[in-house]
Design a binder for these strands. Structure first.
Lengths: 132, 132
DNA sequence: TATTGTTATACTCTATAACTATA
DNA sequence: TATAGTTATAGAGTATAACAATA
């Protein structure tokens, strides 16, 4: 299996997700929730569907995730028009987003410390080509 | 998110798993089952726990997977000692393994066609460094 | 008619804890 | 005591189909 890119990709991704999940634990967020929080933070007032499109999450799966973030007091929804909601972070949400950004930076630093600069750039380029 | 290795890894892996799942459909196997089938094929008589160790699958999760492969008539178990089973492929299992190998080769070829030789080698090297 | 979001549901993979049987 | 496997259960992420409300 060592020369199978697909398999190595899967194993590396699984390892990273486990690392990220552990690092995010103090935030109380799961990886997907953390990603959504940061996307909303960077795009205040965005629509739910747009966030899903950006992260590759189907509309049907966005619903319970957003509902939980709202319930936790991190995200607020304002009626944009009759069928869409504008999402933004609450004060609590913004504070947590800053914390999550730090945790995620630590995670990325841990990954990147295993590779030299050239390998990192090459890896990012290759992954982008494989992404879809 | 474009410069986050962890995130790009996750997206690339998800895309690949979807592709692999679709390509394996005619075999009736899921990606994890296909990997196990090929490992047993390459290691006739191996123990269940050894397969799990190799693929990073916990013992508790191996149980239903192997049970299903046995039920499908692809894998047979022989008592090795009182507590371990030696796994091997049935005739049907070997035939399917050959087919699965072809499907997996197609999958890998599709991935690798997006990268040049140097990028591919670099990617495999980097993924190995990140794997654990 | 097309868009936005929702409900309900199922599947795949993974994780932990507690257990049996054997060595 | 340690090993191999098992049972039961939960969680996280993703998928599809059918639907309501709005534009």
């Amino acid at each position: 299996m060592e020369t199978h890119v697909g398999y190595q990709l899967r194993r590396a991704s699984a390892y990273m997700m486990a690392d990220l999940g552990a690092r995010l634990e103090p935030s109380g967020l799961r990886p997907t929730e953390a990603a959504i929080l940061l996307v909303i933070h960077a795009n205040q007032g965005c629509q739910q569907g747009a966030v899903g499109d950006l992260l590759g999450i189907k509309p049907a799966n966005m619903v319970p995730i957003i509902a939980r973030l709202v319930k936790q007091g991190l995200v607020s929804r304002a009626r944009a028009d009759g069928r869409s909601h504008a999402l933004s972070l609450t004060e609590t949400g913004r504070t947590l987003a800053a914390r999550v950004t730090d945790l995620l930076d630590n995670h990325e630093a841990a990954i990147q410390s295993r590779l030299d600069r050239g390998s990192l750039d090459g890896l990012l380029g290759s992954l982008t080509l494989l992404r879809g």
